[in-house]
Simulated assay, not measured.
Amino acid sequence: MIILGLTGSIGMGKSTTAEMFAELGVPVNDADAVVHDLYKGDAVGPIDEAFPGVISNGEVDRAKLSALLAENPTRFKDLEAIIHPLVRDREKAFIDRHRALATPLVLLDIPLLYETGGESRVDAVAVVTADLEIQRDRVLKRPGMTPEKFALIQSRQMPDAQKRAKADYIIDTGHGLDSARAQVKALVDRLLGKV
């Protein structure tokens, strides 16, 4: 089984690209979706203890947590110490399940793959990229996004050029969906030995 890691900075089109892999039948473990699920379950207690006041209706209130972290970015480390082991447990269960099924290729969609040493858990890494102008335009169109919030997020991410230099494969999403879809198909075919 080949484990492909997919990563890319905010606004590069990583989630859309992961969907393209899924459309081709590649099982995807989406770390963001796992975190979203954990914020409604296993992570609630530990986060409530570490960050009092960020729980609403029995789940982590992302807006409250985000505001708290914006005020005190050093607390990201505390959050990561809670979340990362839980995410890894889910990821391991996903891999074990597909290994047992003899799935030929799986995708781990990991936003901070390089920043967290995730490349050691995959066989190869594909980085999703686009020009800075396209990235900025996409991100600033998101609800509640500000140039300041974008800058804070960027400060926690490895620069795109560094990610591209480390990547085994690059998927450029700056030329439209059809182009990205063709790149994904070519990569899947290559990894599965169809080329």
Score class of each variant (00 low, 15 high):
1 M>F: 11
1 M>V: 08
3 I>D: 11
4 L>I: 11
9 S>L: 09
9 S>I: 13
11 G>C: 03
11 G>W: 01
12 M>N: 09
12 M>P: 01
13 G>V: 05
15 S>I: 08
16 T>I: 08
20 M>P: 10
24 L>N: 12
26 V>N: 04
28 V>S: 14
30 D>F: 01
31 A>N: 03
32 D>N: 10
32 D>S: 03
34 V>D: 15
34 V>I: 15
38 L>Q: 09
40 K>P: 00
43 A>S: 07
43 A>T: 02
45 G>L: 04
46 P>H: 13
48 D>E: 15
54 V>P: 10
59 E>P: 00
61 D>Y: 04
67 A>W: 01
68 L>M: 13
69 L>D: 14
69 L>C: 13
69 L>A: 14
72 N>E: 12
72 N>Y: 02
73 P>S: 01
77 K>E: 13
78 D>R: 04
82 I>F: 09
83 I>L: 15
84 H>N: 10
88 R>G: 00
89 D>V: 07
95 I>C: 14
97 R>Q: 12
101 L>S: 07
103 T>L: 11
104 P>Q: 07
104 P>Y: 03
105 L>N: 10
108 L>Y: 11
111 P>D: 05
113 L>E: 03
117 G>Q: 09
118 G>D: 08
126 A>K: 08
130 A>L: 12
131 D>E: 12
134 I>E: 13
147 P>G: 06
148 E>P: 14
149 K>M: 06
151 A>C: 03
152 L>F: 08
153 I>V: 15
153 I>W: 15
154 Q>A: 11
155 S>W: 11
156 R>L: 07
162 Q>M: 04
163 K>Q: 10
164 R>C: 14
164 R>L: 10
164 R>Q: 15
167 A>N: 05
167 A>D: 06
168 D>G: 14
170 I>S: 08
171 I>V: 07
174 G>D: 01
175 H>E: 13
179 S>V: 07
180 A>S: 14
183 Q>E: 10
189 D>I: 00
192 L>S: 06
193 G>M: 02
194 K>Q: 10
